[in-house]
């Protein structure tokens, strides 16, 4: 007779540890639920959660990128059908993203050889999660106050032009109704691609505000275009991670993705019924909590100051 633990346990071939199927499915579902509710990709929550669950950071990052493809693909498809996706702008972002992701993988390998990958991944997460969480919390509290005071919550109208619009190599993007230099588009795409490789995130949480405030892309095409870029760049990052680091765990990814797909559907339904500001404040608190937990781990004295790992065979020394 098989024991219960045997039934629930599954061995992850790349992470090389045994895990509980339902914990990972649940993790995928919870993050999927949140991403459905808030319309975020969820990569920035999945990777730290996997690290908390003792998945090696290198595997957590690579598999996080793989998981983001699934949650972004269906969204991108929806926007494509509705016509709320700027293919031309998106493709330029993809080009930038692929260059950024390639650089990111190079840095990833370098950090791994130096033994600093885990630290840098944690540090980057602490910085991004606390910044994004803090800004979201501030913004939602502000709008809650305004709502209580009876004022109409008005989005701050972005200024007409900024320094971005004085750059050369301008191009017209008909779908977005903007005429903008391709330099900030490529740089933005590159930065997001870099983060996809190093942090295993889609980067929507940076891409969306940057497109609205820097490039002045109308809000109706922002989400679709961002998802379009995320699908291609995370796909590229996944293949790069698989070929250079062999750190993509498809068993882990499948568990997270199947949980995520189910969770996202329910999240989206609940999300339509709840008040926006309160929802955003909740997500902000969650993001801050995850960031704080990662930050604490950096300061706590480790059980063992010494660690051992296989030397990575490289030609360059």
């Amino acid at each position: 007779m098989m024991s219960l633990g045997f039934v629930l346990g599954i061995y992850l071939p790349i992470a090389e540890i045994s895990v509980n199927i339902f914990v990972l499915f649940g993790m995928g579902a919870a993050v999927g639920f949140l991403s459905g509710m808030f319309g975020v990709g969820g990569g920035f929550l999945i990777t730290p959660l996997l690290i908390f669950y003792n998945i090696p950071p290198a595997v957590a990052v690579a598999t996080g990128a793989n998981q983001v493809i699934a949650s972004s693909f269906s969204g991108a498809l929806t926007h494509f059908r509705r016509g709320t996706l700027d293919i031309k702008l998106g493709s330029l972002l993809v080009i930038g993203g692929i260059i950024g992701a390639a650089v990111g993988i190079y840095v990833f390998v370098l950090l791994r050889e130096l033994g600093q990958l885990d630290l840098i991944v944690s540090l980057l997460y602490v910085v991004f999660l606390s910044t994004v969480g803090g800004l979201m919390l501030y913004e939602s509290v502000q709008s809650m106050r305004r709502a209580r005071a009876g004022q109409l919550a008005t989005l701050k109208k972005p200024g007409q032009h900024n320094w971005v619009h004085r750059l050369p190599f301008k191009m017209r993007f008909r779908q977005s109704k903007i005429y903008v230099s391709i330099i900030p588009v490529l740089v933005l795409g590159g930065a997001i691609g870099f983060l996809s490789s190093i942090m295993g995130v889609g980067g929507g949480f940076i891409m969306v505000p940057a497109m609205i405030y820097l490039l002045k892309v109308p809000t109706n095409v922002v989400i679709g275009t961002s998802l379009y870029q995320i699908v291609f760049v995370t796909a590229f990052a996944t293949v790069m991670q698989a070929t250079t680091n062999q750190s993509v765990d498809i068993v882990l990814a499948m568990l997270l993705m199947s949980g995520g797909v189910v969770g996202a559907q329910y999240g989206a339904r609940i999300g339509q019924k709840l008040r926006g500001e309160q929802l955003r404040a909740l997500l902000a608190l969650l993001v801050l909590a995850v960031g704080l937990r990662l930050a604490i781990e950096l300061f706590v004295t480790p059980d063992d100051l010494y660690s051992i790992s296989l030397a990575i065979a490289t030609g360059a020394t």
């Binding site: 793989n66 998981q67 493809i69 699934a70 949650s71 972004s72 693909f73 269906s74 796909a235 996944t238 293949v239 698989a242 993509v248 498809i250 990814a253 499948m254 993705m257 199947s258 797909v261």
Partner: peptide, 9 residues
Amino acid sequence: AVFLAVVTG
């Protein structure tokens, strides 16, 4: 891995 993710989504 990419194919699996696309199909799942």
